[in-house]
Measured scan of single mutants.
Amino acid sequence: MASQGTKRSYEQMETDGERQNATEIRASVGKMIDGIGRFYIQMCTELKLSDYEGRLIQNSLTIERMVLSAFDERRNKYLEEHPSAGKDPKKTGGPIYKRVDRKWMRELVLYDKEEIRRIWRQANNGDDATAGLTHMMIWHSNLNDTTYQRTRALVRTGMDPRMCSLMQGSTLPRRSGAAGAAVKGVGTMVMELIRMIKRGINDRNFWRGENGRKTRSAYERMCNILKGKFQTAAQRAMMDQVRESRNPGNAEIEDLIFLARSALILRGSVAHKSCLPACVYGPAVASGYDFEKEGYSLVGIDPFKLLQNSQVYSLIRPNENPAHKSQLVWMACNSAAFEDLRVLSFIRGTKVSPRGKLSTRGVQIASNENMDAMESSTLELRSRYWAIRTRSGGNTNQQRASAGQISVQPAFSVQRNLPFDKPTIMAAFTGNTEGRTSDMRAEIIRMMEGAKPEEMSFQGRGVFELSDERAANPIVPSFDMSNEGSYFFGDNAEEYDN
């Protein structure tokens, strides 16, 4: 993207840094990872977990959730003011799984939030270390993106479920800051804005008074975040219109849905970061690795190297396929839920299948599930090659597409044709070009129609051997075009429920 120079890199967003050079960025990201790792080690000690239990991804998720809940100030305040039966607002906890007599047992633990905050700050040299908290939120978000298709949420806001490739980060909490905003897809931002506008339509006082002023500035800020994701002048001009509207209503909703559809071809720039579970960072720190000293990046080879040398386990339900569970977590670790499966298959070195073909449910185990038949197995999170994460949407291309997802959002900077089903997408653009945004709409449609099938995206960008740390010898991959490109292809993934 041309304006790259004016933006802070995501590592800076990730670490609240002012302008830093590459070495400083690597050190501050490393410091953040160190903090998460030290916190995780301490929690495993508190909970008396064995090494194996500490490497269980379900335990990692519970521990991450506990610290996120302990620092969720708004919710904590709300819980104190609106006490609900049987919930102690000062405590947080969740299921911890232990191996007892050759069987997995679930144990519900409860801790004072104050105590968890103390352990977290102690692991982070006394700081609140917001960057580390956001990092864990993005890992949870990436896992949700890989596990669930947001059909219901899309339909509720009037969008087409086939636009799911635009929904990265749709389950990120509001408090995820600049680093969170960077990884949100165009569809996620559109959905947040539509929800806001709908509230304004239904509630006369939404934009009024002292609160209304705050609401208005939040609305304009979200519009600017979305505008910054678009790469064409016409899309940005249309966002200006939406932002400046005196009284946002149905016309703005129409414009936003139009823009979301246009992003299936004229893709937005959305950041991709490899955020790993805390149970990967903990053992690495415990083994003596100093992330701050060595430096770390979320968008280069580092996460690949770390996963190459990590042992992570997962509980497996009786009829689940461990290899499929591994694929789910591998995609989440690489922030690749909406990437082209052919690119992923090449990088991973084994075939990556669409969601609907995987015999696996989510990673988390519900409290009512029976533990008797639970097994555990090693997650295979290694890769054959590594590639640089991208934040450009890439230019655009036609490809055989599917009944489910009709476009992709690249996660890796790797040369390819970008699949999208042009006739299906263009069919949504018939007729409606009147109104105050008509010239911009016409211009956007013209650009979409001009998108050429034979153009290559990320020209000359390749993948790298894991021994090639400096990215000196790019390998331009070859793809098996007979395979499906979309992950949520004609899909039956479970729906995400809060």
Rank of each mutant, 00 (worst) to 15 (best):
R236E: 12
R348C: 06
T433A: 06
Q399L: 09
T45H: 03
N334Y: 11
L61V: 15
P83H: 08
G435C: 05
M43S: 07
M163T: 15
F479Y: 12
A251C: 12
N492W: 03
K293A: 05
T171R: 04
S170L: 07
D480Q: 09
G268I: 13
N205Q: 10
S353H: 03
I444H: 01
I265L: 15
R156K: 09
T130E: 05
P318K: 08
T360R: 05
S217A: 14
L68D: 04
T134F: 08
V109Q: 11
P161G: 14
V343C: 12
P277M: 13
Q364A: 10
L358P: 05
L154F: 01
H324P: 09
G200W: 08
R175M: 08
G180R: 03
E252Q: 04
E375I: 05
N247E: 06
K90H: 13
V408M: 15
R246E: 04
H324D: 12
F420T: 15
G209Y: 14
R204D: 09
M239E: 06
G93I: 04
K87H: 06
S367D: 07
R342W: 06
S402Y: 10
Y40S: 02
Q4P: 00
W139F: 14
E375Y: 05
S60Q: 09
M481N: 07
G187S: 13
R216W: 09
C333W: 09
A263Q: 03
V312I: 15
K357Q: 11
Q20T: 02
T171E: 11
D480C: 06
K422G: 14
D16F: 04
P354A: 15
L315M: 15
Q58W: 06
V280C: 13
T15M: 03
M331Y: 08
S310D: 02
V109A: 09
P303D: 06
M32Q: 01
T45N: 13
E494F: 01
A493S: 01
F488V: 05
Y296A: 15
L133E: 04
N124W: 12
M440E: 07
Y289R: 13
Y289V: 07
T215Q: 14
A366S: 14
K214Q: 14
M448S: 06
L341Q: 03
K31P: 12
T171C: 14
A278M: 12
W120L: 06
I265K: 00
I253V: 07
Q415H: 08
L193V: 08
A123S: 14
F206T: 01
R246P: 08
D145I: 08
T360M: 02
L143G: 11
T171H: 05
K214I: 13
F71L: 07
E11G: 08
T92N: 15
Y296G: 07
I116Y: 01
M1T: 10
K31W: 04
N473L: 11
A234C: 10
S50W: 00
T396C: 10
N334I: 08
D127E: 11
S314N: 13
H135P: 11
E375T: 07
P161R: 09
A178E: 04
R391K: 14
R152G: 07
P161F: 01
Q399G: 09
A263E: 01
M66A: 11
D340W: 03
T378V: 06
R175K: 15
G169E: 14
S335A: 14
A286Q: 14
G356V: 05
I63R: 11
F420S: 15
A153T: 13
E254P: 06
V408C: 15
G349Y: 06
V476A: 15
L47H: 05
A278L: 12
S170E: 06
P89W: 14
A411G: 02
S367M: 08
R441W: 07
Y487E: 02
G200Q: 08
F291I: 09
A428Y: 06
R19P: 02
C275Y: 03
A323K: 00
E484P: 15
M43K: 14
S141D: 10
I316G: 03
G5H: 05
R204G: 01
R361H: 03
M137L: 11
T378I: 11
M13T: 02
V242W: 05
Q415D: 00
F291A: 11
K325E: 09
T390H: 09
G126K: 03
G228W: 07
N334E: 10
R355F: 08
R156S: 12
S287W: 11
M189E: 05
R470Y: 00
L298H: 06
T171W: 01
T130K: 15
A27H: 14
D203G: 03
L79F: 09
V414L: 14
Q122R: 11
A366D: 09
F458Q: 05
R470E: 00
R446F: 00
Y40M: 04
G490P: 01
Y97F: 14
L381N: 14
P283H: 12
L68Q: 12
S28M: 06
A336Q: 00
A260R: 02
S402E: 09
R216A: 09
R19A: 05
K273Q: 07
V414W: 00
A153W: 07
A181I: 00
A27P: 05
S407E: 04
Q58A: 10
R162P: 10
D497H: 06
K305D: 02
F488R: 00
R391H: 04
R65E: 12
R213N: 13
N483M: 15
L276P: 10
G249M: 07
P283T: 12
I445W: 08
G86M: 01
R436C: 03
C164I: 13
Q311F: 02
Q122K: 04
N321Q: 10
L256H: 03
P277L: 03
Q409D: 00
V312P: 01
R261M: 12
L193I: 06
H272N: 01
Y313N: 04
M32G: 06
A260N: 03
A471Q: 04
K351T: 02
R204K: 09
N247P: 10
N370W: 10
R267P: 02
I119W: 10
A271T: 01
G93F: 09
P322C: 13
G187L: 07
I347A: 14
K229C: 08
T232D: 06
K31Q: 07
P277N: 10
K229G: 09
M239H: 05
S170F: 12
L276Q: 13
Q168L: 04
L298T: 02
V242Q: 10
W330V: 11
A336G: 15
V183C: 09
I425V: 15
A123C: 14
D491E: 14
N21V: 06
M456R: 15
S314Y: 11
Q364H: 10
P474M: 10
E252W: 11
W207E: 08
D480W: 04
G126F: 03
A153N: 04
D421W: 00
I253Y: 07
N309E: 00
M43F: 11
I475Y: 12
V363R: 02
T92M: 11
Y496M: 07
R461V: 02
I63Q: 07
E220S: 01
L68T: 07
I225A: 02
W104K: 03
E53R: 10
M159V: 11
E46G: 06
D421E: 02
R55L: 14
E192Y: 14
L172M: 03
M1R: 09
T424Y: 03
S170Q: 09
D160F: 06
S274Q: 00
D127Y: 05
L264E: 11
L266E: 08
D372W: 08
M43N: 13
K184Q: 06
R384F: 08
F412W: 08
N205H: 04
L154C: 12
Q409K: 00
T147N: 11
L344F: 09
A22Y: 01
A411V: 14
S486K: 04
C275Q: 04
I33G: 14
Q168G: 04
K87F: 01
S413T: 10
G394A: 04
E115A: 10
L266W: 11
S141H: 09
C279F: 05
R55S: 06
K273A: 05
T390Q: 02
N59S: 02
R204C: 06
N144E: 06
K325M: 10
P354C: 13
K305L: 04
R470V: 00
S269A: 14
M481T: 02
L307Q: 15
G431E: 05
A181W: 05
S377M: 15
T171G: 10
F338P: 07
G460N: 03
A401W: 04
T15G: 01
R246H: 14
G462N: 10
F479K: 03
H135E: 08
E220N: 02
G86Y: 03
T6I: 10
D468F: 06
L226I: 10
E14K: 15
K198G: 05
Q398Y: 00
G300M: 10
M189I: 12
N247V: 03
S297A: 07
V463C: 14
